[in-house]
Simulated assay, not measured.
Amino acid sequence: MSLPDKQQYHLRRGQIGDPENPHRDIMKKLGSTGSSAPSMESDHSKGLPPEFKGEEESTKSWDSSSVSTYSVSSGRDQCDVCSHTAVKTCLTCMASYCGTHVKDHYTSPDLERHQLQNPQDTSSKSIIRRDIPPPGQIQFTSVQTDSVSLSWSPPEGAPGPHRFRVTWRGGEKQHRMVVAGLGLKVTGLIPGEKYNFAVATLGEDGYQSSCVERSVHTEVPPPENLTVDSSSSEASVRWTKPAGVDQISYLLELFSDQICIGSIHRDYPNYTIPDIQPGRDYTIRVTTVLSNGRQSEPSSQVFKIGIKYMIFMCLSTMDISALTALWMLNVG
């Protein structure tokens, strides 16, 4: 399902039209003096420019129709111009920059006025202005084991274009970014984890609206490669652990005629079911169970042990013109 009005990750700050100078459009909105910042650091408190370690600029195409994407697999904030690790966050631009793209904040007289912080030091609390309308409610358009796609509608009564601050937390980690479109795809998430998302409209002066919030659990992957090998009276069940999950167990359930006739929890991906009746249809279901209690959809397999027939024959009478025989059928 396509998301409306989406932009590439490196366009999400509204830096459109000049990839050589990504700060230009931000400065047009904020003004050359940077006087809209809530507070300013002195040249001394800003510290030395971070060391540049030879990161190359992104060569991704500037496609304004695609969805913004953010990966949290590295556990670090990303640059809002390219996809490299951010080393500084500008509280005036409301953007994060890598070693390459933050250099202008130390050389440009206009940008030197801006307030910089380390990404991990940036406060999650922003100044809210009630006259800035919030975006529409969050909708989750796709929820997978390691990713979530969400969208929202533009704020009512406020002509665009708009920028939005998206904040999400899973466990003890929190991430933030600013997007210029109406949707975001976050990858690198943990299966079965609860994530809380909040979206706010950003004003041109760095203030924001109140947040709209919504929570979702990522999907739990089911067991893989489920097989059943049956013999005369038992069935050997095997499967493989799903990728990307740790500290899991499995719930096995045995069904016959759509009725559960037995269940068991296992820590290992195998089990032998005893006392299977020949000629009867069975269904085995195996479910992944995480340490937090979240469960996957079950993997299932139907099996049946065939009926063996044995015939015993003996001669009763025999003469020249006729043969009489008796036999007995043994089902087992």
Score class of each variant (00 low, 15 high):
S83W: 02
V102M: 02
S32F: 09
P269C: 05
E224F: 01
G75R: 11
A37S: 11
T145P: 00
S2P: 15
L116W: 11
P119T: 10
M177S: 12
K308G: 12
C260K: 14
T100P: 01
V67C: 13
V67I: 15
V81E: 00
S64Y: 13
E213A: 14
A322P: 00
N292T: 10
S232M: 13
K53M: 13
S153R: 09
D229G: 04
H84D: 08
D25C: 13
C82Q: 04
G47S: 05
Q139I: 03
V186R: 02
L226P: 00
S64A: 09
P133R: 12
V186F: 10
K88L: 03
V143Q: 11
P49L: 13
R76D: 12
Y309S: 09
H162R: 03
N118H: 14
R238E: 14
S35R: 10
H217G: 03
K308L: 13
R294D: 07
G14Y: 02
S71N: 09
S66H: 08
S263Y: 08
G31A: 07
L150E: 01
S291R: 06
C82W: 00
W152P: 01
T107G: 06
P109H: 13
D229H: 04
S45P: 00
S151V: 13
P155E: 06
I138L: 11
S73E: 14
K28C: 12
E55Y: 10
H101P: 03
W62A: 09
S83P: 01
V228F: 02
V102H: 00
H84R: 10
S65W: 02
W62N: 10
L251A: 14
T218Y: 09
S291Y: 02
T92F: 09
P4W: 05
S209E: 04
T122E: 15
G279W: 03
T272M: 04
